[in-house]
Design a protein around this nucleic acid. Structure first.
Length: 153
DNA sequence: AACGTACACTTAT
DNA sequence: ATAAGTGTACGTT
Protein backbone atom coordinates (compact mmCIF):
# COMPACT_ATOMS: atom_id res chain seq x y z
CA UNK A 1 0.00 0.00 0.00
CA UNK A 2 1.42 3.35 -1.04
CA UNK A 3 0.57 6.70 0.46
CA UNK A 4 1.29 10.32 -0.22
CA UNK A 5 -0.30 13.73 -0.45
CA UNK A 6 -0.75 16.53 -2.92
CA UNK A 7 -1.98 20.07 -2.58
CA UNK A 8 -5.45 21.41 -3.15
CA UNK A 9 -5.44 25.10 -2.32
CA UNK A 10 -4.57 25.50 1.33
CA UNK A 11 -5.23 21.83 2.03
CA UNK A 12 -3.26 18.63 1.63
CA UNK A 13 -4.99 15.63 0.12
CA UNK A 14 -3.73 12.38 1.64
CA UNK A 15 -4.17 9.31 -0.53
CA UNK A 16 -3.69 5.66 0.48
CA UNK A 17 -3.66 3.41 -2.56
CA UNK A 18 -2.04 0.73 -4.68
CA UNK A 19 -2.45 0.38 -8.41
CA UNK A 20 -5.99 1.18 -9.45
CA UNK A 21 -7.36 0.76 -5.95
CA UNK A 22 -7.77 3.72 -3.66
CA UNK A 23 -8.42 2.75 -0.09
CA UNK A 24 -8.69 6.10 1.56
CA UNK A 25 -8.62 9.81 0.81
CA UNK A 26 -8.68 12.52 3.41
CA UNK A 27 -8.08 16.25 3.72
CA UNK A 28 -5.49 17.53 6.15
CA UNK A 29 -3.75 20.77 7.01
CA UNK A 30 -0.37 19.02 6.83
CA UNK A 31 1.33 17.04 4.07
CA UNK A 32 2.98 13.63 4.07
CA UNK A 33 5.77 12.20 1.90
CA UNK A 34 5.05 9.78 -0.89
CA UNK A 35 3.34 9.27 -4.21
CA UNK A 36 -0.18 10.16 -5.29
CA UNK A 37 -1.86 8.63 -8.39
CA UNK A 38 -1.36 10.81 -11.46
CA UNK A 39 -5.07 11.31 -12.07
CA UNK A 40 -5.60 12.68 -8.58
CA UNK A 41 -2.59 14.96 -8.93
CA UNK A 42 -3.98 16.32 -12.19
CA UNK A 43 -7.43 16.77 -10.71
CA UNK A 44 -6.09 18.74 -7.76
CA UNK A 45 -4.04 20.90 -10.12
CA UNK A 46 -7.22 22.00 -11.87
CA UNK A 47 -7.17 19.68 -14.87
CA UNK A 48 -10.47 18.07 -15.89
CA UNK A 49 -9.30 14.60 -14.86
CA UNK A 50 -11.88 11.90 -14.28
CA UNK A 51 -10.93 10.24 -11.04
CA UNK A 52 -14.13 8.26 -10.57
CA UNK A 53 -12.77 5.14 -12.26
CA UNK A 54 -10.62 3.93 -9.36
CA UNK A 55 -11.62 0.76 -7.54
CA UNK A 56 -13.09 1.07 -4.11
CA UNK A 57 -14.45 -1.61 -1.84
CA UNK A 58 -17.18 0.72 -0.59
CA UNK A 59 -18.90 0.53 -4.00
CA UNK A 60 -19.74 -3.18 -3.89
CA UNK A 61 -22.88 -4.72 -2.46
CA UNK A 62 -26.63 -4.27 -2.33
CA UNK A 63 -26.69 -2.34 0.92
CA UNK A 64 -27.82 1.26 0.97
CA UNK A 65 -24.39 2.89 1.21
CA UNK A 66 -22.86 1.15 -1.81
CA UNK A 67 -25.96 1.97 -3.84
CA UNK A 68 -25.65 5.61 -2.81
CA UNK A 69 -21.93 5.69 -3.59
CA UNK A 70 -22.49 4.22 -7.05
CA UNK A 71 -25.16 6.83 -7.79
CA UNK A 72 -22.92 9.66 -6.59
CA UNK A 73 -20.07 8.40 -8.73
CA UNK A 74 -22.22 8.98 -11.81
CA UNK A 75 -22.53 12.72 -11.22
CA UNK A 76 -20.38 14.24 -13.98
CA UNK A 77 -17.47 16.60 -13.44
CA UNK A 78 -18.72 20.15 -12.89
CA UNK A 79 -22.28 19.10 -12.11
CA UNK A 80 -24.21 18.66 -8.87
CA UNK A 81 -27.14 16.66 -7.55
CA UNK A 82 -29.10 17.20 -4.35
CA UNK A 83 -29.24 14.79 -1.42
CA UNK A 84 -32.91 14.34 -2.25
CA UNK A 85 -32.27 13.46 -5.90
CA UNK A 86 -29.74 10.80 -4.98
CA UNK A 87 -32.11 9.48 -2.33
CA UNK A 88 -34.87 9.21 -4.88
CA UNK A 89 -32.61 7.38 -7.32
CA UNK A 90 -31.59 4.69 -4.85
CA UNK A 91 -34.88 4.58 -2.98
CA UNK A 92 -33.82 5.89 0.40
CA UNK A 93 -34.11 9.15 2.33
CA UNK A 94 -32.05 12.34 1.97
CA UNK A 95 -30.91 12.07 5.56
CA UNK A 96 -29.30 8.73 4.82
CA UNK A 97 -27.54 10.15 1.77
CA UNK A 98 -26.04 12.84 4.00
CA UNK A 99 -24.92 10.17 6.44
CA UNK A 100 -23.27 8.19 3.64
CA UNK A 101 -21.49 11.30 2.38
CA UNK A 102 -20.22 12.12 5.87
CA UNK A 103 -18.69 8.64 6.05
CA UNK A 104 -17.33 8.52 2.51
CA UNK A 105 -13.87 6.93 2.86
CA UNK A 106 -12.70 8.21 -0.53
CA UNK A 107 -13.82 11.78 -1.21
CA UNK A 108 -12.97 12.97 -4.76
CA UNK A 109 -13.01 9.37 -6.05
CA UNK A 110 -16.59 9.18 -4.84
CA UNK A 111 -17.37 12.86 -5.52
CA UNK A 112 -19.41 13.67 -2.44
CA UNK A 113 -18.60 17.35 -2.97
CA UNK A 114 -21.05 17.27 -5.90
CA UNK A 115 -23.96 16.45 -3.61
CA UNK A 116 -25.60 19.62 -2.34
CA UNK A 117 -28.64 20.54 -0.25
CA UNK A 118 -31.94 21.47 -1.85
CA UNK A 119 -31.54 25.06 -0.65
CA UNK A 120 -27.79 25.57 -0.32
CA UNK A 121 -24.42 23.92 -0.49
CA UNK A 122 -24.93 21.44 2.34
CA UNK A 123 -22.11 20.23 4.56
CA UNK A 124 -18.60 18.92 4.14
CA UNK A 125 -16.01 17.58 6.54
CA UNK A 126 -13.54 18.73 7.56
CA UNK A 127 -14.51 22.14 6.15
CA UNK A 128 -17.25 23.34 3.84
CA UNK A 129 -14.75 25.74 2.23
CA UNK A 130 -13.16 22.73 0.54
CA UNK A 131 -16.49 21.83 -1.03
CA UNK A 132 -16.99 25.40 -2.22
CA UNK A 133 -13.50 25.47 -3.72
CA UNK A 134 -13.94 22.11 -5.45
CA UNK A 135 -17.26 23.12 -6.97
CA UNK A 136 -15.93 26.52 -8.04
CA UNK A 137 -12.90 24.89 -9.63
CA UNK A 138 -14.92 22.30 -11.52
CA UNK A 139 -17.37 24.88 -12.74
CA UNK A 140 -14.57 27.10 -14.00
CA UNK A 141 -12.71 24.26 -15.70
CA UNK A 142 -15.90 23.06 -17.35
CA UNK A 143 -16.77 26.53 -18.59
CA UNK A 144 -13.31 26.87 -20.06
CA UNK A 145 -13.61 23.51 -21.82
CA UNK A 146 -16.96 24.48 -23.28
CA UNK A 147 -15.58 27.78 -24.55
CA UNK A 148 -12.66 26.01 -26.23
CA UNK A 149 -15.08 23.52 -27.77
CA UNK A 150 -17.19 26.30 -29.16
CA UNK A 151 -14.17 28.11 -30.55
CA UNK A 152 -13.22 25.04 -32.55
CA UNK A 153 -16.58 24.75 -34.28
C1' DA B 1 -28.81 -7.27 22.82
C1' DA B 2 -31.49 -3.52 23.43
C1' DC B 3 -31.89 1.49 23.59
C1' DG B 4 -30.93 6.32 22.81
C1' DT B 5 -28.84 9.82 20.26
C1' DA B 6 -26.68 12.13 16.59
C1' DC B 7 -26.25 13.25 12.19
C1' DA B 8 -23.26 16.84 5.53
C1' DC B 9 -31.69 16.45 4.54
C1' DT B 10 -36.41 17.22 2.92
C1' DT B 11 -41.16 17.94 3.00
C1' DA B 12 -45.28 18.96 5.11
C1' DT B 13 -47.68 21.11 8.99
C1' DA C 1 -40.89 27.36 13.17
C1' DT C 2 -41.29 22.77 14.16
C1' DA C 3 -41.97 17.84 13.44
C1' DA C 4 -41.70 13.49 11.23
C1' DG C 5 -39.38 10.22 8.44
C1' DT C 6 -35.06 7.96 7.28
C1' DG C 7 -30.55 4.23 7.84
C1' DT C 8 -26.43 3.78 10.12
C1' DA C 9 -22.97 4.26 13.69
C1' DC C 10 -21.73 4.67 18.26
C1' DG C 11 -22.24 5.17 22.99
C1' DT C 12 -24.47 3.58 27.27
C1' DT C 13 -27.03 0.31 29.80
Amino acid sequence: MKSGSCRFGLWHVHVYWSGRTVQRVRFSTTGIDGEVPDAIKLFCAGRPADISAFDTSSLHGDEVYPRIYRAVRLIPYGHTATYGEIAHRVKTSPRVVGQAMARNPVPLVIPCHRVVAADGIGGFSPAVEIKEALLAMEKMVLRKLQLEMKAKQ
